[in-house]
Design a protein around this nucleic acid. Structure first.
Length: 587
RNA sequence: GCCCUCAUAGCUCAAUGGAUAGAGCACCGGUCUUCUAAACCGUAGGUUGCAGGUUCGAGUCCUGCUGGGGGCGCCA
């Protein structure tokens, strides 16, 4: 990447020296020097020293020997003018970059590549990411938010990391919940049409349906009868189902628009039901599934088939009455994705509670003989709970509606803009409030590890202070503000003619890490890495802003710092963009 | 019963097997006549749940234990 050339040059030298001296250095793992203001490459020799002792059968002090090797290297490695200093420190070899050479290189690269800074060349891996997966005819609540935010960020990061990403959504458009909704609608809301917040309207009817289902003695029978009509493709019911389903889709579109999330492809459960049943037949025919109907269901006894115990358990693939299950459809969908899009890999963004289930699906597809099953990946994340570890459930009415949260976030952000920047136009204030509010909500979800439960708390979710998106956005705005005072003119590339301060070096160092962090985040599928880097960049920029005058400085210092400010703004903005967060011009 | 997962400052969380375990919040005190104070600085806060093990080196990997959460044949 940014330092590949000089890195390789050093590597060749070091490996050659080790060979000469008989030092068993397997591979060179460069790290950055973990001291602020020290910018360069670092390498440890503990492993080599330990390996050497083992080979020679000696018991010697590894730390001491590592330092000796590092010392030896520091004396013999020839540095190009790309480096300033080489020193052996406690078993590490630290090679400091020449600030003149590399700060210019980093800043030039960022300002040249702009929005593509950090973006890798294409690796020709075609990856589908399935996320969101909402049920039609139901509400969209805060519990669903993490999935959308995470899935979207993963898509951005994988794309930046080199993959060809296909963003897929899988909509639960059939099943008992839909029929229950239709039953309530036909009986109590016939002819009504949604207005305003469509998803909320749909969700309200669903909640009512659940309530009436429990209260009304005849409900169960009526719903079952309606299910039968739908199953027999009664034109009237099918038409109503199609119309109401479209309402839900329109409602989801509103939500995705506010979240600024787009999909390349939509799958529907109703589309894979039939093909799912065909697969079940195949499973039975090949002796992989046991048909226990009519007393029991159709099941795949995975542990028996795999010779494992209590690992895969049993997967039910068809109900005893012959109707399909989630698994029926997921088997078909898994295959269909690879066939339609010639995928290299397929990622499922689904909460951690479905881990076993997805392992069962993947294993069943594996047993069916598909060659790509080792490229199925479940990206598991923990759920969003309410205080007291209460899981949100629309059935129990313990939900925070997404739109309510968004509205409140925007209201509060709007109040802050009003206070901080009253001279802006109404339109500007709204736009900033929206960017800040959405940013804060998204950052809160992405700045903790996927494996950590998020406890939703109104105050915490709406806290714009500290390690939060508005802080990061504000740093970019400050950089932008300096540039604006220079009529947005970024000077041409120029040589470094002054001594960089520690904070400037640290800032440039952090900027230079973006491409590698993107790679790491893509590999581990952890937006958290980008969230952390964005915060570090913002924090360091704020230090720079306080310590280093830009516009008031001597002409060449001024021009250099103007370019640095522009590069910092770009780096921050790119990181935020990967998280799906926008960077305002002013705030 | 089996499996997964989490446990780090008062709280919420970070930390490629590597150098001195860091942020934010909260608390207390300070900084706008200078590019936006949605900012910055300072004080304080730690036996990384417990016990072993692997390793030159463990918050990180392995085993066991304790405690929380989740999952385990016809919900999605």
């Amino acid at each position: 990447m940014m330092f590949d050339d000089v890195q390789n040059q050093l590597e060749t030298q070091i490996l050659a020296l080790c060979r000469e001296e008989g030092i068993p250095l397997g591979q060179v793992n460069w790290n950055w020097i973990p001291f602020s203001g020290h910018w360069g490459l670092s390498l440890s020799f503990f492993q080599a020293a330990a390996e050497e002792a083992k080979q020679k059968g000696l018991k010697l002090n590894v730390g001491k020997r590592a330092q000796e090797i590092a010392q030896l290297m520091s004396e013999h490695v020839k540095l190009s003018d790309a480096f300033d200093q080489i020193e052996a420190v406690r078993g590490y070899l630290n090679i400091r970059f020449s600030n003149a050479v590399f700060s210019r290189r980093v800043i030039d690269t960022v300002l040249e590549e702009k929005d593509d800074f950090g973006r890798a060349s294409r690796n020709h891996i075609r990856t589908m990411v399935e996320f969101s997966q909402p049920n039609t005819h139901k509400a969209f609540h805060v519990g669903h938010l993490r999935n959308v935010i995470l899935g979207n960020a993963i898509c951005n990061i994988l794309d930046f990391g080199g993959d060809d990403v296909i963003r897929a959504n899988y909509l639960g458009d059939i099943g008992l919940h839909v029929i229950k909704w239709l039953w309530c609608y036909r009986k109590y809301h016939a002819g009504e049409q949604p207005t305003g917040d469509i998803t909320r309207w749909m969700g309200d009817i669903y909640a009512e349906a659940t309530r009436r289902h429990e209260e009304e003695p005849d409900a169960e029978a009526e719903i079952r009868a309606l299910f039968a009509r739908w199953d027999n493709r009664d034109p009237e019911i099918v038409r109503e189902w199609e119309v109401t389903r479209q309402w839900s889709l329109d409602g989801f579109e509103q939500i995705y628009k506010t979240l600024n999330v787009k999909f390349d492809h939509l799958y529907f459960e109703s589309d894979v039901e039939d093909s799912g049943k065909v697969i079940v037949d195949e499973l039975i025919a090949r002796g992989m599934a046991t048909d226990e109907r009519p007393e029991g269901a159709v099941v795949v006894k995975l542990d028996e088939l795999c010779g494992t115990r209590d690992k895969y358990r049993v997967l039910v693939v068809l109900r005893s009455d012959g109707t399909s299950l989630y698994s029926t459809k997921d088997l078909a969908l898994g295959i269909r994705k690879f066939e339609e899009f010639k995928l290299n890999r397929s990622i499922y963004v689904i909460d951690v509670r479905q881990s076993l289930y997805l392992q069962q699906i993947f294993k069943t597809l594996d047993l069916l003989g598909y060659p790509w099953t080792d490229q199925l990946y479940h990206l598991a994340y923990e759920i969003v709970n309410l205080p007291g570890n209460v899981t949100m459930s629309s059935r129990d009415g313990t939900v925070v509606f997404l739109q309510d949260l968004i509205d409140e976030a925007i209201t509060r952000a709007r109040a802050v803009v009003e206070e901080k920047n009253p001279s802006l136009t109404d339109e500007e204030k709204s736009s900033i409030a929206s960017m800040v509010a959405m940013g804060a909500l998204k950052y809160a979800m992405l700045s903790r590890d996927n494996t950590k439960i998020v406890t939703f708390d109104w105050e915490a979710a709406l806290d714009f202070n500290g390690q939060a998106a508005p802080y990061i956005q504000y740093a970019a705005v400050r950089a932008n503000s300096i540039l604006r005072k220079n009529d947005m003119v970024v000077p041409d590339s120029l040589p470094l003619t002054y001594e960089l301060s520690e904070v400037e070096i640290e800032l440039i160092d952090l900027i230079s890490r973006v491409p590698k962090e993107v790679q790491r985040a893509a590999k581990e599928m952890k937006p958290l890495f980008i969230a952390n880097l964005a915060f570090d960049l913002a924090q360091t920029f704020n230090n720079f802003y306080r310590q280093c005058p830009v516009l008031q400085a001597e002409p060449d210092v001024r021009d250099y710092r103007l370019r640095l400010a522009a590069a910092a703004r770009q780096a921050i903005s790119n990181c935020l963009a990967l998280l799906g967060i926008e960077t305002p011009e002013v705030m």
